[in-house]
């Protein structure tokens, strides 16, 4: 160990002080206060009445909340398959010897994730628009105007329709992560696999994937965390509607807190989002861990 350049404990502490203090103030403190408020009936304003577990009991019987939770799970599953899955396939394609202009592919692939979710929601609103949208325009152009519809008003399809922009936006983000992970794999391994006659598909499945397992696990965790708190593009596109057909947990918490001025119950919903997200992330990691261990054994 290079003890000569190892900084003193005090130096490390001072360097970390500002970011840790900011983290505590912006994440930890609100979390704790939300947890405290969740035990109160608080309709905004200075008066709060302690009501024990009443908010949590209401939450257990709140159909809208559990419907929203279901929608979040839908988003998580669709985005793990859509975002990470497609990103992996695209990375394999970009890395193939047949593809030219690799940097351009990478840059343009990453581009959508730099756009703000609000702009993205507005853009996709135009795509889905009943009168001027490109989808209905295309259907009319190919003579299938019978298939034209008010897309975002279709209760059965609306969750899929709000998920597509999310998938599209973040493919590039995961591409960059996966690309950097693959870059760290020794090229000798691929070369010897090729000498043994492995095709692209076999290389991807049996060499690349096991070697970037940990990175993929990080991607899955990020994907779950991101989708459990999904809010902005759905808010712009449907406001959770029609009715509650595309309601997600964060939006329901927002609606209860600010539209219904029920801060106590809103805090309870926030705590529930936190706990449920931890459970889902923990569960998924455990599941992946078990599956891969069995394979190795």
């Amino acid at each position: 160990m290079l003890t000569t350049i190892k900084p003193k404990g005090k130096t490390i502490f001072l360097y970390l002080l500002i970011p840790v203090a900011m983290f505590v103030f912006t994440v930890f403190v609100p979390l704790v206060t939300a947890f405290v408020y969740s035990f109160f009936e608080w309709k905004g304003g200075p008066q709060k009445t302690f009501n024990g577990l009443e908010n949590y009991i209401t939450l257990l019987h709140d159909n809208t909340f559990w419907k929203a939770f279901g929608h979040n799970i839908y988003l998580v599953v669709a985005c793990i398959i859509g975002q990470i899955g497609i990103a992996f396939v695209l990375v394999m394609m970009v890395n193939s010897k047949l593809v030219r202009f690799k940097t351009i592919h990478r840059t343009f692939g990453f581009f959508p994730s730099t756009i703000s979710a609000v702009c993205l929601g507005l853009i996709w609103n135009m795509i889905y628009h009943n009168q001027y949208g490109i989808i209905n325009w295309f259907l009319r152009a190919i003579g299938r105007s019978d298939l034209c519809q008010v897309w975002l008003n279709n209760t059965k399809l609306v969750m899929l329709l709000v998920t597509i922009p999310l998938i599209w936006q973040y493919i590039g983000y995961y591409m960059v992560i996966i690309l950097s992970a693959i870059a760290s794999i020794d090229t000798d391994i691929f070369e010897s696999a090729e000498l043994d006659g492995a095709n692209g598909f076999q290389k991807a499945l049996h060499i690349t994937l096991p070697l970037i397992k940990n990175t993929m696990l990080v991607c899955v965790t990020l994907c779950i965390a991101g989708n459990m708190k999904a809010f902005d593009n759905i808010y712009v596109m449907t406001k959770g509607g029609p009715g509650t057909a595309s309601m997600v947990m964060a939006m329901y918490g927002y609606q209860v807190s600010f539209n219904q001025s029920n801060m106590g119950y809103g805090s309870c919903i926030s705590v529930a989002i936190f706990v449920l997200s931890l459970l889902v992330i923990g569960g998924t990691r455990g599941l992946i861990g078990r599956l891969t261990r069995e394979k190795e054994a």
């Binding site: 608080w42 309709k43 905004g44 304003g45 200075p46 008066q47 600010f258 001025s261 801060m263």
Partner: peptide, 29 residues
């Protein structure tokens, strides 16, 4: 304004929406 009311930190003068009158009056805001 709903956030500021919840934090008991309303501005000196503001616009009160009819449907908030009872809640905010009861809270002494």
């Amino acid at each position: 304004i709903a956030t500021l009311a919840a934090a008991d930190d309303l501005p000196d003068v503001f616009l009160l929406q009819g449907m908030n009158t009872i809640d905010w009056a009861e809270q002494g805001l």
